[in-house]
Amino acid sequence: MTKKRFLWWSIPVLVLVLTATALVYRDLPDIIPIHWNAAGEANGYGARITIFLLPLITGLMMLLWPVLPTVSPDKFRVEGFSDTWWFGGLVMVALLAYVQGVQLAVLAHGALDIGRALLGGIGIAFVLLGNVLGKVKRNFWLGVRTPWTLASDRVWYSTHRLAGKTMVTGGLVVLAAALAGLPPYVSTAALLAGALVPVVYSLVYYKRLERAGGA
């Protein structure tokens, strides 16, 4: 994946999302649901114009993604894993677009189980990102960025090898749970485990190396 391909894919996705949002906008009520809990129940509302908030965030992320590498300190640049960097950005754009599409489908038709749909999309994103996480080198923008991974190359690489496995496993569990209609707490637990286990591991491993004088 290159910067050019990132833009070739992400710009049409954003245009498509903006077009679909504009088409649905005129038929929306003045107040719309903008947030749902894990069970798929609306628990937050806002003005109709807020339907454009997520595409705005997507556009801002697309603008920032090429800029972030240029402001990284010398020892934390992304050139060493640029393919993964652009792939990760595209996954994030696709996930935000998917979330917007699900929201539009619910607002337009109301028959979709938004909880299962969103969790399924997040599960796929976890699998895609986890599959390449081991290639990510130390940086401030992408990966498991804890004080301990940023302080040690050994901790960074070991943590990200583990994180790749926990994210892929967690993502597959979430996807399976969404397809099977399992209770939301199953997916929530899988997501938390996939994200938090590497964080705890980075602390434990760093302290072990520190005691051994090799951190």
Rank of each mutant, 00 (worst) to 15 (best):
S10A: 15
S10G: 02
V13I: 14
V15I: 13
L16S: 13
V17N: 07
L18Y: 10
R26H: 15
D30R: 15
I31Y: 13
I31P: 04
I31A: 03
I32H: 06
P33L: 04
I34D: 01
W36Y: 12
A38S: 15
A38Y: 11
A42K: 15
A42V: 04
N43L: 06
N43D: 15
I51V: 12
I51H: 13
G59P: 01
M61V: 11
M61H: 07
L63H: 03
V71Q: 06
S72K: 03
F76D: 11
R77Q: 13
F81M: 07
S82N: 14
T84H: 01
W86M: 01
F87A: 14
G89F: 03
V93M: 11
A97M: 04
V99H: 10
V99Q: 04
V102Q: 02
A108K: 15
A108R: 15
G115E: 03
L118T: 12
L118I: 15
G121T: 06
I122H: 09
G123K: 06
I124W: 07
I124E: 08
A125N: 02
A125E: 05
V127C: 09
L128V: 00
L128T: 06
L128E: 01
N131G: 11
V136F: 11
V136R: 03
F140G: 10
W141G: 12
G143F: 08
V144G: 10
L150T: 07
L150A: 08
A151V: 01
D153R: 12
D153L: 03
W156Q: 03
Y157S: 12
T159I: 00
R161N: 04
G164W: 00
M167P: 14
G171H: 09
G171I: 00
G171S: 10
L172A: 14
V173S: 07
V174K: 14
A180T: 02
P183T: 01
A189F: 09
A190S: 10
L192W: 01
L196I: 04
P198R: 08
S202P: 03
V204R: 07
Y206D: 02
G213I: 06
